[in-house]
Design a binder for these strands. Structure first.
Lengths: 340, 340
DNA sequence: ATTAGCACTCAGTAAATATGAGTGCTAATA
DNA sequence: TATTAGCACTCATATTTACTGAGTGCTAAT
């Protein structure tokens, strides 16, 4: 268990290191107003803290830096997750809504705003359309053999794909099929579309045997429409200002990792579903992020569960500020009404 | 005017430097099979080439490197723009078409392929939808007051936007408006939509006075739909392998510049409209690209003018190979039929 | 006109030497 | 018994110095 002074020292070390990115020495600490002990005393406590694995030294004659365990302790004991400044939340909400009312734009803005506030990189995952329900499906003919399949969800999300048919489409045939699909599939979550169509297809076969071929094609196309989840990156260049990313060896893996959209999406989707969660250094299990910490949170927009937002910075990130800003932003989003 | 030997030497210097990224010395050159002169002779010619501004030395005791003027000479005199290897073009075409038939995917693939072939970064601008003609416009109601405006073009391009109405929409009213818009605007290039609607709006006013308000809203929304040109980036990480981008000072401006999508789009759109065009170092006028050269070309797909593709590498890029690959790719695209 | 020869230049590397911030331990002090 | 002053020791970093070697320009010989 930590003595009060040790706690004070640990906190001072971390706060200082977060600011300066330099190892913190005993003399520096003893000069602080809130630590009126001699450097020797502090050295003794530091030795204890090191024994406990909370801090470490890069080499013999350097000061101490927090270890991952130390950060973990700091985050768990010294950072308040739930601290919302009503006025600031309100102001952030205003800033967000000023830009747009469309949800996708709103999320993009939120990501940008969050990275402006913190100077870290943010990633936001939009709503997974998998949960959206089919509002309407349609086929717009372009010419005899080509058409665009349109899928609109109850959330106003649109997906589309161009299809080419083997043989010219009979207009009434198309209309019939579309109507059929709409009748049967309206309200189906997009994620289940494929499955549901499998169920319906036997009915179809009986009802419209003669043009079975083209119908199948249309259905295939419908199912084949991709359901990408939209991904927004904010403040990517902030990384250039972090002292720990001033060398190619550290910078390159990070940049290569963050540019890989698909992997990024998978990662965000795989995160545990919580309100605000901090993952420190190697905890996140990603090689390219071994020197990074991540603050993630699911967010809701207008009350509805929506997506995930993440903030990525060096392990030496300002957890207190980061967590606070994250809290404010998701609260501002939560309070945002989609329609005016 | 250059003597034959000087030309030989210039070419050798550039070829060598492109390979090694190291200044080339007289002794190195004299050891080449195609340059059986003594190093002293070569030194004399090098001095002349330097006087002409074609090569320069980083410092007294280094070898020579090509100057921008030198590269320009090399590109203008020693690189053949139009050299197509039928078999390879065919093979590239196959590789492209294997992946997809949809034009947007095809372009993305082309960008990736080109950067694979050259190890440089590529940027491709998709078709500007401005030239696409309206095939159909539609409004899909989501609930009483929200709907999705859909715009489909003759090329199968889809754009959409969610609109919120002040007051509930009357279904027949909506239908009427949509029909009206479709009747009047079908075939209009997207770029002119705004203008054309201005012309039509007075007619509308007369015809449907009572619900003028909602109609106006719908029309506004229609016009307000954005027309983004799609942009694809290929092989961004290739830059990390270029020796001239091993330091943050050079890397950072490049990465920051290339991540700025809008600026990138504007830049590509502003390029002179030619088949293959090489811009060397500071010629391109972009600070972040002062150490880069760019090979650009407009391309056509299935015969139709489509967009622009660019390849960005260090000034010390392999112009011969780059130009050749660019030629092959745009030729492969040109020969690609959109429907099977 | 070409080449051999030689003195000279200068980036890059490596070894040699300081510098100083910081530590751990011990003994004195409150 | 907890704190502090004092001191020897460590080690990354900066500075100096010397050395190496690839390359040049010039001159004199071929």
């Amino acid at each position: 268990m930590l003595t009060e002074r040790q706690l004070l020292i640990l906190r001072a070390i971390i706060d200082d290191y977060i600011q300066t990115a330099q190892p913190v020495g005993s003399r520096t600490l003893s000069k602080r107003d809130d630590l009126s002990f001699s450097s020797a005393t502090i050295r003794n406590d530091m030795a204890d803290l090191e024994d406990m694995g909370l801090i470490e030294k890069p080499h013999t004659s350097a000061g101490r830096i927090p270890s991952e365990v130390g950060y973990r302790y700091y985050v768990d004991h010294l950072v308040e997750t739930k601290l919302i400044d009503e006025r600031e939340t309100y102001r952030l909400g205003e800033r967000l809504r000023a830009s747009a009312q469309e949800s996708e734009v709103l999320i993009r803005q939120a990501a940008d705003l969050l990275s402006d506030l913190t100077n870290y990189t943010t990633v936001a995952l939009g709503p997974s359309s998998q949960m959206n329900r089919l509002a309407r499906i349609d086929l717009m003919p372009l010419d005899e053999r080509r058409g665009v399949v349109l899928i609109v969800t109850d959330q106003g999300h649109v997906e589309h794909r161009t299809v080419v048919f083997e043989s010219p489409m009979a207009p009434d045939m198309v209309e019939q099929t579309i109507r059929f699909l709409n009748d049967r599939l309206k309200g189906t979550p997009l994620g289940q579309l494929k499955f549901r169509i499998g169920e319906e297809v036997s009915n179809l076969r009986l009802a419209h045997q003669q043009q079975y071929e083209s119908m199948m094609q249309l259905i295939q196309a419908t199912v084949g429409v991709h359901h990408p989840t939209s991904l927004y990156l904010g403040g990517k260049k902030n990384i250039f200002n972090q002292p720990e990313f001033q060398t190619l060896d550290t910078l390159r893996p990070f940049l290569e990792w963050i540019d890989e959209q698909e992997r990024l999406t998978d990662w965000l989707e795989s995160l545990p579903n919580r309100e605000i969660y901090v993952s420190i250094g190697s905890e996140n299990g990603i090689l390219a992020l071994q020197n990074c910490s991540v603050i993630t949170s699911d967010y809701t927009l207008d009350g509805k569960t929506f997506g995930t937002i993440a903030m990525i910075g060096p392990t030496r990130m300002d957890y207190r500020h980061g967590v606070r800003m994250m809290g404010q932003i998701i609260e501002a989003l939560r309070r945002t009404k989609l329609e005016e």
